[in-house]
Amino acid sequence: DRMTSQEAACFPDIISGPQQTQKVFLFIRNRTLQLWLDNPKIQLTFEATLQQLEAPYNSDTVLVHRVHSYLERHGLINF
């Protein structure tokens, strides 16, 4: 699994950072998509996403918020 070119453009700090940071991003992105796909008729809020993310992935709330906002803005969740 890899970041898309659009994700890389929107998250230059992640793509240029350590490999582990990219893996954390990918986990948060994929898990958020999975959470929404589990029940697409219900809006997936940032707060609900954060509550359902497993530790330690829920510890970087800023990154979780950025990923959630990106997915929502680009019509990948909550459409």
Score class of each variant (00 low, 15 high):
Asp1Trp: 05
Asp1Leu: 09
Asp1Phe: 14
Asp1Ile: 07
Arg2Ser: 12
Thr4Met: 05
Thr4Pro: 03
Thr4Cys: 12
Thr4Asp: 15
Thr4His: 04
Ser5His: 14
Ser5Phe: 11
Ser5Trp: 12
Ser5Ile: 07
Gln6Gly: 10
Gln6Thr: 12
Gln6Cys: 11
Glu7Asp: 11
Glu7Met: 02
Glu7Gln: 02
Glu7Thr: 01
Glu7Ser: 02
Ala8Arg: 13
Ala9Trp: 09
Cys10Trp: 10
Cys10Ile: 08
Cys10Thr: 12
Phe11Met: 03
Phe11Arg: 00
Phe11Tyr: 02
Phe11Asp: 02
Pro12Gly: 07
Pro12Gln: 09
Pro12Lys: 07
Asp13Leu: 03
Asp13Gly: 04
Asp13Pro: 01
Ile14Asp: 02
Ile14Phe: 03
Ile15Trp: 15
Ser16Thr: 11
Ser16Pro: 03
Ser16Gln: 09
Ser16Ile: 10
Ser16Tyr: 09
Gly17Asn: 04
Gly17Trp: 03
Gly17Phe: 03
Gly17Arg: 05
Gly17Gln: 06
Gly17Thr: 04
Pro18Val: 08
Gln20Glu: 14
Gln20Asn: 11
Gln20Arg: 12
Gln20Ser: 13
Gln20Cys: 12
Gln20Val: 11
Thr21Asn: 15
Thr21Ser: 14
Gln22Gly: 05
Gln22Ser: 06
Lys23Glu: 08
Lys23Ile: 08
Val24Asp: 14
Val24Gly: 08
Val24Leu: 13
Val24Cys: 09
Val24Asn: 10
Phe25Leu: 04
Phe25Pro: 00
Leu26Gln: 09
Leu26Gly: 06
Phe27Ser: 08
Phe27Lys: 07
Phe27Met: 09
Ile28Pro: 01
Ile28Gln: 00
Ile28Val: 12
Ile28Thr: 03
Ile28Arg: 00
Arg29Cys: 01
Arg29Phe: 02
Asn30Arg: 08
Asn30Leu: 02
Arg31Cys: 06
Arg31Trp: 06
Arg31Pro: 01
Thr32Glu: 00
Thr32Cys: 10
Leu33Asp: 02
Leu33Gly: 01
Leu33Val: 11
Gln34Glu: 08
Gln34Trp: 06
Gln34Asn: 05
Trp36Cys: 05
Trp36Ile: 00
Trp36Arg: 02
Leu37Asn: 15
Leu37Glu: 13
Leu37Lys: 14
Asp38Met: 12
Asp38Asn: 13
Asn39Ser: 09
Asn39Ile: 01
Asn39Trp: 03
Asn39Tyr: 06
Pro40Trp: 03
Pro40Leu: 04
Lys41Tyr: 11
Lys41Arg: 15
Gln43Asn: 08
Gln43Phe: 15
Gln43Cys: 07
Gln43Tyr: 15
Leu44Glu: 00
Leu44Val: 10
Thr45Phe: 00
Thr45Pro: 03
Phe46Ile: 14
Glu47Met: 07
Glu47Cys: 07
Ala48Arg: 14
Ala48Tyr: 09
Ala48Pro: 01
Thr49Pro: 02
Thr49Glu: 01
Leu50Val: 11
Leu50Ser: 04
Gln51Tyr: 10
Gln51Glu: 13
Gln51Cys: 10
Gln51Asp: 10
Gln52Leu: 09
Leu53Gln: 02
Leu53Lys: 02
Glu54Thr: 09
Glu54His: 07
Ala55Phe: 13
Pro56Trp: 02
Tyr57Thr: 04
Asn58Pro: 04
Ser59Met: 13
Asp60Trp: 09
Asp60Ser: 07
Asp60Leu: 07
Val62Asp: 11
Val62Gly: 14
Leu63Glu: 04
Leu63Gln: 00
Val64Ile: 11
Val64Asp: 01
His65Lys: 15
His65Asn: 10
His65Ala: 11
Arg66Gly: 04
Arg66Pro: 00
Val67Tyr: 01
Val67Gly: 01
Val67Ala: 03
His68Pro: 02
His68Trp: 13
His68Gln: 01
Ser69Pro: 01
Ser69Val: 07
Ser69Ala: 12
Tyr70Glu: 03
Tyr70Ile: 01
Leu71Thr: 01
Leu71Val: 01
Leu71Ile: 02
Leu71Arg: 00
Leu71Gln: 00
Glu72Asn: 07
Glu72Met: 07
Arg73Cys: 12
His74Trp: 05
Gly75Glu: 15
Gly75Phe: 05
Leu76Ile: 15
Leu76Phe: 10
Ile77Asn: 02
Ile77Lys: 01
Phe79Ser: 15
Phe79Cys: 15
